[in-house]
């Protein structure tokens, strides 16, 4: 009985826009040409464009690199930080709170902070480099390091999130497991590898999944730090969709890319959820 209204609301706020997005993707809708809104004469045209769009393909590859590195760094750093903080309750509380600051800042503020760090004319870091006489390249304008600078800023912002999830899981970990292993003479490294990590598997996967999905939505850092450049080396599909839609008014085409991106995220999420729930069954 109660499920009906919930499903109706869900249909209105989620399903309907998605269906509308798909319908738009079948048209050549261009805001500068109102007549294109109802033009269904070549419904697969946008999808055909996508197959030939090398820039889109490059942006997908950039996304793979960005997602893989940010998720890896954030999970590893979050795990290490959680392990350290779990041992010291009093110090841990203070450090934990301060580590949360980047995560609660608005993304635009995070981007501005890193923009200042990476702008040699105003960056204290570059004043220091100059003082030492080091000629350090500027990462956001150097094709070799531009993506790395986004990864660094994103990791700084979001590793506290994975840390919090892992800390919560660690606090639930039965003390007997650790004590038994200690009695058997396990070293700290063996404890971590054979006891803690297997126990945290589910938490790590959940944290990774959340960060993976969020990494696909990357926008403010890229918009403010590199604008997708230099060239297009930091351009991810999300940013490319923005350019197509808001700079060029190709709403039909950007909708088609969005439909494909949504489908990819759904498949990815389904796959990872299966892995996670499979792991739970094994436990």
């Amino acid at each position: 009985m109660l499920l009906g209204p919930v499903l109706a609301v869900l249909a209105v706020i989620t399903l309907l826009p998605t269906v509308y997005l798909f319908v738009i993707s079948l048209t050549p809708l261009n805001l500068t040409k109102p007549g294109t809104a109802g033009d269904f004469s070549h419904i697969w045209q946008n999808y055909r464009y996508m197959l030939a769009d090398m820039r889109l393909r490059d942006s997908l590859w950039t996304q793979v690199k960005l997602s893989a590195s940010t998720v890896a760094f954030q999970v590893v750093l979050g795990f290490l930080a959680a392990l350290l903080l779990n041992h010291s309750a009093r110090v841990g509380r203070i450090v934990r709170t301060s580590l949360l600051i980047p995560m609660v800042l608005p993304p635009i503020v995070v981007a501005i902070i890193w923009k200042m760090v990476f702008s040699p004319d105003i960056s204290p870091l570059w004043w220091l480099f100059n003082w030492f006489g080091w000629n350090v390249p500027v990462p956001i304008t150097d094709a070799r390091f531009a993506l790395g600078s986004i990864v660094l800023a994103d990791t700084w912002e979001w590793f506290p999130f994975t840390m919090m999830i892992i800390l919560a899981a660690l606090s639930m970990m039965p003390e007997e497991l650790v004590e038994a292993a200690r009695l058997d003479g396990a070293t700290p490294v063996q404890l971590t590898w054979y006891i803690t990590l297997p126990y945290l598997r589910g938490a790590l996967l959940v944290a990774g999944l959340f960060r993976l999905i969020d990494s696909i939505k990357a926008f403010p850092l890229i918009y403010l730090l590199t604008s997708g450049g230099p060239g297009t080396v930091t351009e991810v599909p999300n940013y490319y969709i923005f350019v197509q839609s808001f700079n060029f008014s190709y709403v039909g085409y950007s909708s088609a890319i969005t439909v494909v991106l949504v489908a990819m995220v759904c498949v990815l999420s389904w796959f990872i959820v299966r892995v996670v729930s499979g792991g739970d069954r094994a436990e």
């Binding site: 050549p28 261009n30 500068t32 040409k33 294109t36 464009y49 030939a52 820039r55 304008t141 150097d142 094709a143 450049g229 230099p230 060239g231 080396v233 060029f248 190709y250 085409y253």
Partner: peptide, 30 residues
């Protein structure tokens, strides 16, 4: 321009790519 300055391509290569990408985008506009 940013590709040339950042050393990703020389002027000819970068502008050849810009030309073909611009043609594709203009055609997309009908």
């Amino acid at each position: 321009i940013s590709q040339i300055i950042s050393g990703q391509a020389n002027a000819k290569t970068a502008l050849d790519q810009a030309e073909s990408a611009a043609i594709a985008d203009i055609r997309k506009a009908g």
